[in-house]
Design a protein around this nucleic acid. Structure first.
Lengths: 335, 335
DNA sequence: TTGTACGCGTTATCAA
DNA sequence: TTGATAACGCGTACAA
């Protein structure tokens, strides 16, 4: 008892497959009577069209691919949520791939997506290298990066201006009368989340006439909670007098809250902390984390919408600059 | 400049498409010389096979579909991570769908997956109704549920025994000399995460000879952080004397920590709290949340592995019972 | 060792 | 209003 094909329907209904096809694709040219008849036998046989066969001839897979370095975190989840919603609205499916920030796996996934004839690619939270970019260019489908960065010029991106956002975060701290401000971060050499945020921190300080002291930005190998513990302890050892802290991610910020608590420092009374990202995590910490929000779900949705535009028009997308905003909660002491 | 097909390669290399095909599928029957020649022109033309055409003839899409009620949370993310890893190992792609726990959307997605010829389906965190089950049965592909529940008998599942796990959580509280134990939950009528966990709570109490008092389990409409605030305040109003609390999710647990703090209660000194789920969130709270872990990533991986077995053998999977375990952190006062 | 030709399930272009 | 039939890109039995 195989899956019925259009042929089976045609035979059963004693019409040609062409007629069935027309009825299926609300084409024109058939009587209402045959239409009803065919629709009935379709129902009776439980027929449903084969998108693979359809895709072969139409050259459309109605599928896009999304690459994440890691899918298990909140950032990926929120981005994906936005993408899925936009895709569903266009009757597209989304294939998710995890790259582990690993070059080989990334290329593997790209090749796979190419073979599966995806019509567009969303590249998230990971640098789009020249190698990847030129491969995708050969694929001949549009790409867009989300919360990411491209080696090559002219690749559309959906992202916030990290330096400006970081700068605003620190300005906010300064506006609350803080002058002793430290920072914890991931690797300063990270071109996505490291360098620009540190530069923003620096800029805000200089604007305010506060001397920038490199030793006040402590970092570890990443932006997760676990890294925060290490970075924070480095910082606190060197500069116990700090009254405010800019954390380059929400996880780092939450981690700092925990560390501060363990050291007997009260947040925000003894130490004010502002995070970065605006994930759900921030509102769940104790105290709730003031943070600068990127709006990941919205970024996901936006990126998918732009990608679909690009798929339809054939024109490359201009990308979109996303506005960050500061979400005030309770981890910064208000003056 | 279209995408080159096997025909182009054949023409360019002056061989037949059959030969190219054989070489591609490491079949047998060609000289080393032609092999090299063909491989070279493939490289030169940048040819890559079309999985859609291939799938049409082989009747294999090398794709599975995963349904989530909501993809933006940590639970989904962790499950998906496990699934993706297992799928990648089998050279399968995974299509994610969001259902919003909405019957129509779920059926829409199921239909779409059917048309796209997915070879299996993973159903997560949402009841598999008879309607869904019979549709999938008609599809003729294996299903497996993760952290979920099926109306129909005989559907393989990967899940922990919620009642037993909840019972263990409360036993743990009792083992730390607690007798005044409350619970916050989502809807008691929820067959996935509501009823069984409340039953576990009840059982542990009865085992220990502690009287079960219905008014000590407070709930709101869901298991998220926001719901916890409401449930907790209901509970605290009625029973301010409680010394311990079982929260039916990590988010509820973390929410309780925040609420307790706001009321001036110290955790764990004045109030011990144990959560449920074992997501990354639990370790990031302040204090870190003791919880009973389900191991979502592992569940995701396991479910995918079982699904692939089922796809290969054609036999329905037996499913798998996952062991929960209590992860001790700092939200429960140790005696 | 290699090539020809058919079929997978559809859509689309012709004629009828 | 309908029905043959040629594609789409590929795998494979069969013939050479």
């Amino acid at each position: 008892m195989k899956r019925p094909t259009i042929k089976d329907v045609a035979k059963e209904a004693s019409v040609s497959i062409a007629t069935v096809s027309r009825i299926l694709n609300n084409g024109t040219g058939y009587s209402d009577k045959t239409r009803q008849h065919v629709l009935n036998t379709i129902e009776r046989l439980g027929y449903s069209p084969n998108a693979i066969a359809r895709g072969l001839i139409s050259k459309q897979s109605n599928t896009i691919g999304v690459l994440f370095p890691d899918v298990s975190g909140l950032i990926s989840a929120e981005i994906l949520q936005g993408i899925e919603e936009a895709a569903h609205a266009q009757e597209f499916s989304v294939i998710v791939c995890k790259t582990d920030s690993d070059g080989k796996k990334t290329m593997d996934n790209l090749r796979l997506l190419h073979e599966k004839q995806v019509e567009g690619i969303i590249f998230t939270s990971q640098m789009l290298t020249n190698e990847y970019a030129s491969f995708i260019e050969k694929m001949g489908v549009p790409v867009i990066t989300v919360s990411s960065y491209s080696e090559k010029e002219g690749i559309p991106a959906v992202k916030v201006d990290d330096e400006a956002a970081a700068c605003d975060a620190v300005r906010y701290l300064i506006s609350q009368q803080h002058t002793q401000i430290g920072m914890i971060s991931g690797p300063p050499t990270d071109p996505l989340a490291g360098t620009p945020r540190i530069n923003g921190y620096k800029r805000a300080l200089e604007e305010a006439g506060i001397e920038y002291d490199e030793s006040k930005v402590a970092w570890d190998s990443g932006f997760y909670f676990e890294h925060g513990e290490i970075a924070f302890s480095k910082l606190h050892e060197l500069h116990p007098q700090l009254t405010a802290l800019f954390a380059a991610s929400d996880e780092l910020g939450v981690s700092a809250i925990s560390c501060a608590y363990d050291l007997g420092l009260r947040v925000p009374d003894d130490l004010s902390i502002i995070g970065y990202d605006g994930t759900r995590l921030a509102k769940m910490s104790n105290p709730p984390l003031t943070t600068v929000s990127q709006g990941f779900e919205e970024m996901g949705r936006k990126s998918a919408e732009l990608l679909f535009e690009s798929i339809e028009t054939g024109e490359p997308s201009p990308g979109a600059a996303i506005q960050h905003r500061i979400v005030e909660r309770k981890s910064v002491k208000k003056k």
